[in-house]
Design a protein around this nucleic acid. Sequence first.
RNA 1: GGAGGAAUAGCGAAGUGGUCAAACGCGGCAGACUGUAAAUCUGUUCCUUAGGGUUCCAUAGUUCAAAUCUAUGUUCCUCCA
Length: 370
Amino acid sequence: MKLKFELKYTDKLTASRLGTITYNGKTYETPMFMPVGTNATVKTLSPEELKEIGSGIILANTYHLWLRPGEDIVAHAGNLHKFMNYDGPILTDSGGYQVFSLAKQKDITEEGVKFKNHLNGDTLFLTPEKSIEIQQKLGSDIMMSFDECVKWPSTYEYVEKSVERTLNWAKRGKSVKKENDQLLFGIVQGGEYEDLRKHSAEEIVKMDFDGYSVGGTSVGEDKPTMYKMVEYSTKYLPIDKLRYLMGVGDPIDLIENVMRGIDIFDCVSPTRLARHGHAYTKHGKINIKNSKYKEDFTPLDETCNCYACKSYTKAYIRHLITNDETFGARLLSIHNINYLHRLMDEIRIHVKNGDMKEFRDQFIKDYYGK
RNA sequence: GGAGGAAUAGCGAAGUGGUCAAACGCGGCAGACUGUAAAUCUGUUCCUUAGGGUUCCAUAGUUCAAAUCUAUGUUCCUCCA
């Protein structure tokens, strides 16, 4: 079944938007946060738990599923939905992030990217065509173009070349796409350079993708730079298509970037931080391993409605985490993803109310205590 | 009763004359994490007023210098009776 996006409302004071995604008879509201399940699982959580906390689209990763179990096995299972038992929408990243996190600069050529398989040392070669072919076999609902996620900072000269390469790759990927229900998104790159972002966005829009991503953020840049990168990108994107900011999930960044016209976000933070013992709360991020929680028999966040907060205390979760008990990671993952989903709920209300700036300022006071 | 062996920081364990406040691991205390090579990684962990001070079972020695060598004692382990 095909995923459909409808823009419902645009804020007058900011670039914030409200919309709906319909898929498989269900409607999801945007702006939305998407949990990451790289390896065809949102680490420690079942699909039922994800639905319980209100997850909509979730992510999976082309590169990792290509290596294991292999796209053919997923295809033999039916598709990714059947393989992992998730009937909500699934978005696959193209492997573009692995160009940033795994490849060396010299491994990147016009043709594609050479990887050293971290599992057995094989040399692998991923191209834009190959990435789309794998994603088609995986059967995700939203496929991403294969791009180069450039490290920050990078020189203008390097980013300029990289943008051309990513545009080329987008075209090549699109050319092998079959006519089916899968959507394909283009990705805007261009580093922190306004004219390169503009060029990247305008050219990618000309290719007419089903939606657009802002890439190349959350690679170590400071927040003002990230926000600029987003602004330089979204202002050249068509209003009626979904806009996805890749890899961003810090609570304040969700608010700031909704205000800059983003509809959907993904980030590993809630689940990784959970496994490392951290919880988002109304009053900032806490480290449950800190000894001050040893005898704290209150919930992670008094204002939270999640399963972990309804039934368990900080002291107990601390005990689980310090003993490497998986249940602790699961409780914190439930809590953190739920926190981001509830934050998006609030954001939607404030977009509708037209008071996003006030909401942002109050959030900063509560979260950072200033 | 006899014969061997061992005692090192919170725990385990290296070190067997100077480069030793003492490797390493665990535990403890903190920190980082952004389209997940991440249930991972980093720092720190005798005391300190930051100048130093006090350590390697105890005591007495040898030596310019001892965790390291000697003597005695204490405790523990193994084997034999």
